[in-house]
């Protein structure tokens, strides 16, 4: 075959493939209810291999972390003992209102009312791979639909809110973290629940957002929790306000938030599976 003809053939094949890829991107972008058969199949093969690769790495990481933090453990132990004493006092106080809560639960049962925030047993999972693209903060965990995980299941760590499930296979699922540019979470301030707003992921580790009502006051160091609007249940710690300023439009109070979760170091997560409402 002559070289110019071969070159033209390769150019045509490349152009066709490039056009096909653009079409693929269009089809597979956006929120999908289910992953395709091929993605599920590839995920089911690749995920166990990734898990096998990461198991010794996680074991080493855990050991190194334990050794590195040994010096702090004694101090933490004393602090926790003090906290325990304080909590015991709080328990005594809260028992007084417990009987009131029991009455309300009885009423809920009598009226056959199902809470919108009802969730099943939390599922523990390990992160086995991360997307290396800067523009998405997405990672894969070693639990999927077989463990009760569905699209939009809420993902937490021991420190706070991590994100939500965007794709679920049989034994794997993909999580979009709240620090992803395409994630947004409505919040309220822990100090004053009337102060509400919304935070979004940014290209950096920090979250950016604004208050719904500019007349409300927010302070540096305020802790933000989920407000319960949208898919995230109420009261999960999001992070701490590190900066307050005006948004680009100079109308709303803009806030910069340091997430409670360190997304670079996170290895283990908890997933709240949505309970069957029927």
């Amino acid at each position: 075959m002559s070289k110019p003809f071969l070159n033209r053939k390769i150019a045509i094949i490349t152009t066709v493939l490039l056009i096909l890829m653009v079409i693929f991107m269009g089809i597979t972008s956006g929120d999908r209810e289910q992953v395709s058969v091929v993605e599920r199949w590839v995920g089911n093969i690749v995920t166990p291999i990734q898990r096998a690769v990461m198991t010794p790495i996680h074991a080493v990481q855990d050991r190194v972390y334990d050794i590195a933090n040994f010096a702090q453990l004694n101090q933490q132990n004393q602090e926790l003992q003090q906290k325990l004493i304080d909590k015991e006092q709080e328990i005594i106080q809260s028992r007084l209102s417990e009987s009131e809560l029991e009455e309300l639960r009885g009423l809920q049962e009598a009226l056959n009312y199902v809470s919108a925030e009802a969730h099943g047993e939390p599922i523990s999972a390990r992160i086995i791979s991360k997307s290396n693209a800067d523009w998405f903060n997405v990672f894969t965990i070693n639990a999927g639909e077989n463990h009760g995980i569905n699209l939009d299941s809420v993902v937490l760590s021991e420190r706070g809110l991590v994100g939500r499930i965007i794709e679920a296979g049989d034994n794997w699922a993909r999580v979009m973290s709240i620090s992803d540019s395409n994630s947004s979470v409505s919040f309220k301030v822990l100090r004053d629940a009337n102060v509400e707003g919304i935070v979004q992921g940014s290209a950096t580790e920090e979250l950016e957002g604004y208050l719904f009502d500019p007349r409300m006051e927010i302070q540096k160091g305020d802790q933000l929790v989920t407000s319960g609007q949208g898919i995230f249940p109420e009261g999960i710690l999001i992070g701490e306000v590190t900066e307050i300023g005006k948004s680009r439009e100079q109308l709303l109070d803009a806030v910069t938030v340091q997430p409670a979760v360190d997304f670079q170091k996170i290895n283990r997560v908890l997933i709240l599976g949505l309970e069957d409402m029927n």
Partner: peptide
Amino acid sequence: TVTGVFIGLNTFIFLL
């Protein structure tokens, strides 16, 4: 397929 939020991005760039 393994990492992408949508399919085709890496393939497009690698082919190019």
